[in-house]
Design a protein around this nucleic acid. Sequence first.
DNA 1: TTGTACGCGTTATCAT
DNA 2: ATGATAACGCGTACAA
Lengths: 310, 310
Amino acid sequence: MISSLELAKLCGVSQGTVDRALHERCGISQATRKRILEAAELHGYRSNPAARELMTGQSRIVAAVIPQLNSAFLMDFAGTVKSALYPAGFHLIITPADTPEEMTELINEFAARRCHAMLIVPHDDGFKLPAGLDMPVASFLSRCKGGKTVFLHADEKVSGSAAVDYFISQGRRNIVHLTYNRQSHAVQERAAGYRENMLKHGLKPQIISADDSDSLLEFVKNHKVDALFCHNDWLALNALRTLEQHGIKVPQDISILGMDNSLLFTSLCDEISTIQYPFEWLAGEFMAVLSGSYGQTTPAPPPSIIKRRT
Amino acid sequence: MISSLELAKLCGVSQGTVDRALHERCGISQATRKRILEAAELHGYRSNPAARELMTGQSRIVAAVIPQLNSAFLMDFAGTVKSALYPAGFHLIITPADTPEEMTELINEFAARRCHAMLIVPHDDGFKLPAGLDMPVASFLSRCKGGKTVFLHADEKVSGSAAVDYFISQGRRNIVHLTYNRQSHAVQERAAGYRENMLKHGLKPQIISADDSDSLLEFVKNHKVDALFCHNDWLALNALRTLEQHGIKVPQDISILGMDNSLLFTSLCDEISTIQYPFEWLAGEFMAVLSGSYGQTTPAPPPSIIKRRT
DNA sequence: TTGTACGCGTTATCAT
DNA sequence: ATGATAACGCGTACAA
């Protein structure tokens, strides 16, 4: 990789002239510009981003630090964010952090690099953000403690509530929520939305944890469950298979509603309906965080139910 | 973010002394070192990687450029590579490139950054690597044209062959390979291994494309297929559901073998067996590429079949 | 139109 | 034990 100084020497000009040619700045003759650009092309010259970032104190990199890679949901979101960033000249780079400690370490590393912004997906609501972060930071799925983060989130209560409405409109009454046992905003709020709406309709909220999946089958049988609202599509698919294997017909006996509309899973079956997660809208919100215009943005779209054979 | 110069001024010493304290170098009294380290801690000082990389011409960043994020397989591999890199002090960063052109652009960007090494997953075998890359580069799944890339790959022919052996040992003879229609090394070689071993056993190779999934059901019915070897676990799960929905019993009527052992899918059902993809071994090979010791490494492990209810 | 000089933050070397 | 100085590659302001 050639440097701008080397390129200048090669062309018999000064570094300043090279810079003028490269940045289409004025004060240079067409002839020398052409000559320099051709030489640059020939030698595959590229300005070193590290040097530029050092100069300007700003980088075009947006760092996403996430707890795990093998989450279809997170990857869908990351892909959407990337598609929003790229046309604006930003590069999204993704790094997994196995533990909260590792996450802290990586955040500090990127902060030292003075990346343009950060998108953090904490392991849970307990994550403590390192102090002194000098760029826009957004967290997703779980809140960060400390620091002035924007917390990007869908209205999970409304989603949980919408699920109940949906089932009721289908004539189901014995509606169970299958979710995780985790101190995470999305998990807690969605369950709260479910619970409140159930009570409002005079129905008994019943939440079971996905961690002991054995209990699902028993519960469904013993309680005559006729509707199952799952925290995500993977859980929905998993439940679908468990129930089907034991002779329970979906959606005849029990109706299943997932969430996120993860293509990876929903394309596998048309028995489960799902709720579209507002990826695009959240990506837009994140862009607003970058530009400093967060807060004056468009309202969240209402939960949209993707109805399949249910 | 404070700089080393600012830190020096804060402590009333020179930049050189700060550096000695930070890097545990000799030529500094314990007292001043302690004082400086405490001040650094207090102000959250971190050396700027961009500046260091500019100085040393080397970075600890390993860039992975991949065609898509929503691939459980790629994410499993990326996770394994990351776990191998991190303890060695390297950072794996992952960037998706929607198109080959975008991939070229990103590779050039990382090259200009003088990252430590690159792991490239091309869209297909036609990808042309940019010239002048100055760091170790490995490609995965598909070969790159041009450049001196190490091509990381499992022995796909052996895998395809092992699948046939497995089914035959189970008493199946009418074995079909369900795969993609893509000019990618993994796809082509695995199919070749399947085909050759089928012929060796006097059986007729039958390959159907996953792209027209409608044909699968018809084909299975018309040809009395009793074994299905799928290119990956997603395809296997997809096939399983299609067949089950039409009354075909798995594994009684037809046995299904997937590949990769992607937890995301295999945990969803125990009807399909799968072949373990050698993630760990390949990550080890990549580390060897980094250290320049590639080629003297351990041989690939033989295909290991994860047998489930089949 | 072109060249020169300085600074970004680090690190390494040479002098004190 | 500590300070001064140079260099990495780039961008910019100023001088020629």
